[in-house]
Write a protein that binds this DNA or RNA. Sequence first.
RNA 1: GGCCCUAUCGUCUAUCGGUUAGGACGUAUCCUUCUCAAGGAUAAAAGCGCAGUUCGAUUCUGCGUAGGGUCACCA
Length: 478
Amino acid sequence: MSTQIEKKIVTRFAPSPTGFIHVGGVRTALYAWALARKNEGKFILRIEDTDKAREVEGSIAHIIESLKWLGIEWDEGIDIGGPNAPYVQSQRLSHYKKYANILIEKGLAYPDPYTEDEVKVFRKKAEEEKRAFLYREHRPESFGVWDGTKPLRLKVPVVKSYTWNDDVRGELSAGEEALDDFILIKSDGYPTYNFAHIIDDLEMGVTHIVRADEFIASVPKYLSLYDALEITPPIFVTLPPILGEEGTKKLGKRDGAKDILDYREEGFLPEAMLNFLVLMGWNPGGEKEIFSKEEFIELFDISHIHKAGAMFNEEKLLWINKEHIRKQSKEIQSQSVKPFMKDYPDDLLNRLLPTVIDRISNYGQLNSIEPIEFRFFINTPKLDVEKILWKDSSKEEALSHLQAVKEILSKADFLSSESIKESIMPYAESNGKGNVLWPLRMSLSGQEKSVDPFTICYVLGRDEAINRIDSACSVLDS
RNA sequence: GGCCCUAUCGUCUAUCGGUUAGGACGUAUCCUUCUCAAGGAUAAAAGCGCAGUUCGAUUCUGCGUAGGGUCACCA
């Protein structure tokens, strides 16, 4: 038995309530969650609402709804208490203040004596001289007492090059210019992300920081803060970017990234969304592509997370969604189809279901497909002679074939479309399939393009099928 | 511009120095078929460039190139 106590993995997803979350945010949440689940760890949902100006009303509810829809469940967080509650940064100001005071006592934090405009001038000057702007070059000689009305800055403890390990990227490093006296607490009393997330991760026992790679450039700053606080940083798990479909830009709200719940509205399945997103930056190796939640959690591991970015591709998402639809039980499929096909009688819809499933990649497509491809099942088609006739065949010919088929159908086995096909095919083959089947399908559907006539017969049922053939016959006869 | 990261078919990817560089999406063609789908089959399609290490590099190293990120009292 090992004496080493293995630390339980703790991850978190920490969005800011500035609107909806898009696929990028969901992917981050998904990886953090999968990592915790795979290792029987803990997954925390924390809200980072320290920028009151950017806050958008209703965001938190929206985020919760999004994650719940996807089935990404948190063990502790905004609405589930835990030892580190609350999980909302605006309610944790005393925690940040406590650590700020520790830093002040150590002489590693000081109030910024300049106004915003003065700092702006420094920055502009550096830009003009084509140098990187470093606030610490303007650091005052002596520090006043922080009364909370000025921003509190970190005094970088040691200006040096940092080298650190990232579980995905390996060894990373940056020069001294990546270090600066950044703001810990803003003049409005709220901490910055840079400060708050470090305190929260520490207090909440986060072991793995899973986040996208836009934060790499800031890591040296964080390391200097960890040093100042004399704490050991968590493990960094940096995710590759997700690029937008059009350009090569990182996917973001400005580039038209959609609200994740829009995909729900469009009829995508949450499990398909997760399957698609888990593959945006991770792959277990091998050729399997369709995974259930349980399957990919079982396989998930950091070593297979990619370094390079991936472009978001909705075509593939659609394909994955189709595969997931086809794996659903008939009951679920039926429930999902019904809202789009309310007017269809239950028994008819039951017989039609496999055909419907066959023709969609996404339930939302039924909005446009149903009126075109299926409506004739419940609306009797309007027929005219021209449409019924196959190529240059005659009215008489069509009429006799329809009457013959009607005879066959009156005695046929209506157990399945296959059985109907078996009854009709011998006649169709000996009289020319087009000559028989085109008028038949037309009388049943009234459409040039449709499902095959055997399936239509089966779905309509014997009586309705024969009725429609009769109507067609009378059109031809007149 | 400084700093940092990344680099295999159009797209998502497999390969952990030796492969005819494999799969999937999409595309094309064919089969199936009365039509439209679905399905099946086949095809086209990739190691960014240049050096180096090595018996041998897609794989390791360097340089270049390209793309991305970041330089806020935003996260």
